[in-house]
Design a protein around this nucleic acid. Sequence first.
DNA 1: GGCAACACATTTGTTGACAGTTTTGGCACC
DNA 2: GGTGCCAAAACTGTCAACAAATGTGTTGCC
Lengths: 227, 227
Amino acid sequence: MAARAKTRPRTPSAPETVAEILAALRERIANQDIPPGAKLRETDLAAEFDVPRTRIREALNALEQRHLVERIPNRGAVVFRVDFNQALRIYDLRVVLEGLAARLATQNGTPARWKREADLFKGPLKVMVDRGDLEPYIEHYEAMRRAIIEAAGNPLLAEMLDTIYEKTRVLIRRILILPGRAEVGRLQHVAMLEAMARGHAEEAERLRRAGLQSAKAHLEKFQKYIL
Amino acid sequence: MAARAKTRPRTPSAPETVAEILAALRERIANQDIPPGAKLRETDLAAEFDVPRTRIREALNALEQRHLVERIPNRGAVVFRVDFNQALRIYDLRVVLEGLAARLATQNGTPARWKREADLFKGPLKVMVDRGDLEPYIEHYEAMRRAIIEAAGNPLLAEMLDTIYEKTRVLIRRILILPGRAEVGRLQHVAMLEAMARGHAEEAERLRRAGLQSAKAHLEKFQKYIL
DNA sequence: GGCAACACATTTGTTGACAGTTTTGGCACC
DNA sequence: GGTGCCAAAACTGTCAACAAATGTGTTGCC
């Protein structure tokens, strides 16, 4: 799959289409490689990606519609800054949307799938948390989360969660690093996944909501350490 | 407010900016003035609005991102068709998002506001439903719904609900016309609004969710009459 | 030395023109 | 009379040049 000369004559890592440029910029903003408040100059980006400026403009339009950048007339695009209140509002949305995802995933997926996931969180992932080895734990958490959203089978839901998750991705990591938080979260995930393995959709939804509410409470409590 | 020569030299009803054109097209698609499957030709729209084609293109890009039109390469934009399964998925989203809106509105708004609304649904609006005078009833229902979303005070939530509501606006009307449905819905709204007036946020959420679940059930039951 | 005003450079916004692709209409052939 | 093919028209996709606005640096005056 490395060399498909027809569709991609250049190196695979060079973004050229609007969609590719958009994805690259979304990634950078979500990782805060481009920090909040930073100005995105069209000319610079056009030079960097080696594409006409019009294409950059289209990508910036898309970012604006996702509220990842703010467009100030005649002054360009600035990376949106998520303040504390907005972060809380995003958590309110995550509570209900991820709750829905858990319910639908329970109805659509096989119990065995979630049983396997629960065992992971009880075994290897517990060891990681105990060791304070959080990076691989976070990675697997995100994979589990994506699996649930995927299994929910509602593309519109998936897109909404994408849109809001990328806005708080760095925040989520900062919450997880708080003392004791990772273990609390892990136990909540185990409880939810076991409910899913038993096929209890409503209970899975309730547990997912409770887990995110408690994460939100942590955010409020430790606001000054996070934002 | 009729004649502000500075900011709007022409008649107020002539859309010129991208935002205005976008709003006009969204309205037409939501009303099915432009029916699903219809092709939107850039040249025609440019001529109709008397703006350069590039501006139409930008509006179409925005519509594409909202999944209101589908862009087929070199073949233009086609109005998206919401099939039965997609309609059900949209209802799943409405259930949780409008439930959240009801909960937040209860927490943020004044009880008197919701009491007044409940009385409307018990008095004048009941008369309308009994008479089969559904058009003004629907109009007030939508106003009440907007008031709740507004009071929820979460712009991102408001935007998400906008995005999905406009896709099923015509469907909602067809469900409401089903025999007996309007009265069932009215009673559910009364129950929810009274919970809101009592300040019972969680109960309001639960009732809103139940109301929309029952609307979804109607949609499933009478699928052949609606789609 | 500080401040205001002007001119220049930089950046964003807008548009028409050109290129590529699909559709349509007509014509010849079977 | 129907069908396949070719050419022309119509439409979308791409871009580079032009226009407008903003920020910056310099100069002159108080």
